[in-house]
Computed example of a mutant assay.
Amino acid sequence: MTNATKDEIEPSRLQKAVEAIAITPASAAILVDGYRENFETKFNRAPESAEDKSQIAKKIIGRYSKLAATAGAVTALPSVIPGVGTAIAVVGGGVTDLALALKLQIDMCTCLVEVYNAEFSDEDKKHLAFVLALAGSVEQLAANGGKAAVQKVAQKLVYQYLKGPALVTIKQLFARFSIVFTQKAMAKAIPAGVGVVFSGSTNYVLTTIVGKVAVAVLAK
């Protein structure tokens, strides 16, 4: 590997923090298996159809949207979201807020990937989940339009990024997320909130939209 290639994929502090605390595909598989078992108990059949998977996906999106809404100040998070101490140790300061906000969306997307693409390798699941969560968040931050328009544009963005090299793509998305977030924060114009320092309702909205974008991509 050349030095240029190393520089190209060297992760940022934010990326390192998120990767350190994000759920693993194996853990996501266990969580999703629980949803599948509940479905089988309720309906006496395995969740195999597109509609069945959609029902499980909605429950996952609802769970993580509520977690995002519950998340308050960093000091209140340890009992709600595992990984706070790790994030602080890796990056500290305000970056921790962004890392934890992205963690929830990436955890959600990892579970959604498991629902729709359980046969993928763990590495592919991880890369796909990161792209889904980051692209959805970036587009929601950058957009000025309504929810429906944002979702459609975000879906196109995800498809675009999925065509590129995974590691480079993920680094680019982290960089773009940081830039867009900083610009919005300085202008005090952050829409539908990102970051645990913002209101629960705005965190809920963003996480829900990211989840819907992910399902729209994965269900095709």
Score class of each variant (00 low, 15 high):
65 S>N: 01
67 L>Y: 12
68 A>N: 04
68 A>G: 11
70 T>L: 14
71 A>M: 09
71 A>D: 02
71 A>G: 01
72 G>T: 11
73 A>H: 05
76 A>L: 12
77 L>V: 08
77 L>I: 12
77 L>C: 01
78 P>E: 03
79 S>A: 14
80 V>M: 14
81 I>N: 00
82 P>M: 12
82 P>L: 12
83 G>E: 00
84 V>M: 00
84 V>R: 00
85 G>Y: 01
86 T>D: 05
86 T>E: 08
86 T>I: 10
86 T>Y: 02
87 A>E: 00
87 A>P: 00
87 A>G: 01
87 A>M: 00
88 I>S: 09
91 V>S: 15
91 V>P: 13
91 V>H: 07
92 G>F: 05
92 G>W: 11
92 G>I: 10
92 G>T: 11
92 G>M: 13
93 G>T: 10
93 G>E: 08
96 T>D: 07
97 D>A: 11
97 D>L: 05
98 L>S: 12
98 L>M: 10
99 A>W: 02
101 A>K: 01
102 L>E: 01
104 L>C: 00
105 Q>G: 05
105 Q>F: 05
106 I>P: 02
107 D>N: 10
107 D>Q: 06
111 C>H: 14
111 C>W: 09
115 V>D: 10
116 Y>A: 02
116 Y>D: 02
117 N>G: 03
117 N>K: 06
118 A>N: 06
119 E>R: 06
119 E>Q: 04
119 E>N: 00
119 E>D: 11
120 F>T: 09
120 F>Q: 02
121 S>T: 09
124 D>M: 11
124 D>C: 03
125 K>L: 14
125 K>A: 14
127 H>P: 10
127 H>R: 12
128 L>D: 12
130 F>S: 05
131 V>Y: 05
131 V>W: 05
132 L>M: 03
132 L>P: 06
132 L>A: 07
133 A>C: 03
133 A>N: 04
134 L>Y: 01
134 L>E: 03
134 L>H: 02
135 A>D: 03
135 A>V: 08
135 A>Q: 07
137 S>P: 13
137 S>R: 06
139 E>G: 08
140 Q>M: 07
141 L>P: 02
143 A>Q: 12
145 G>P: 11
146 G>M: 01
148 A>Q: 05
149 A>L: 09
150 V>M: 08
151 Q>W: 09
151 Q>G: 15
152 K>L: 08
153 V>M: 05
155 Q>Y: 04
155 Q>H: 07
155 Q>R: 13
155 Q>T: 04
157 L>Q: 13
158 V>T: 10
160 Q>P: 04
160 Q>H: 10
161 Y>S: 09
162 L>R: 04
163 K>Y: 15
164 G>F: 11
165 P>A: 15
167 L>K: 14
167 L>F: 10
168 V>A: 15
169 T>A: 12
169 T>M: 12
170 I>E: 06
170 I>F: 03
173 L>D: 04
173 L>S: 02
175 A>W: 07
176 R>W: 12
179 I>A: 10
179 I>K: 09
179 I>T: 13
180 V>S: 11
180 V>Q: 08
182 T>A: 11
183 Q>I: 12
183 Q>C: 14
184 K>Q: 13
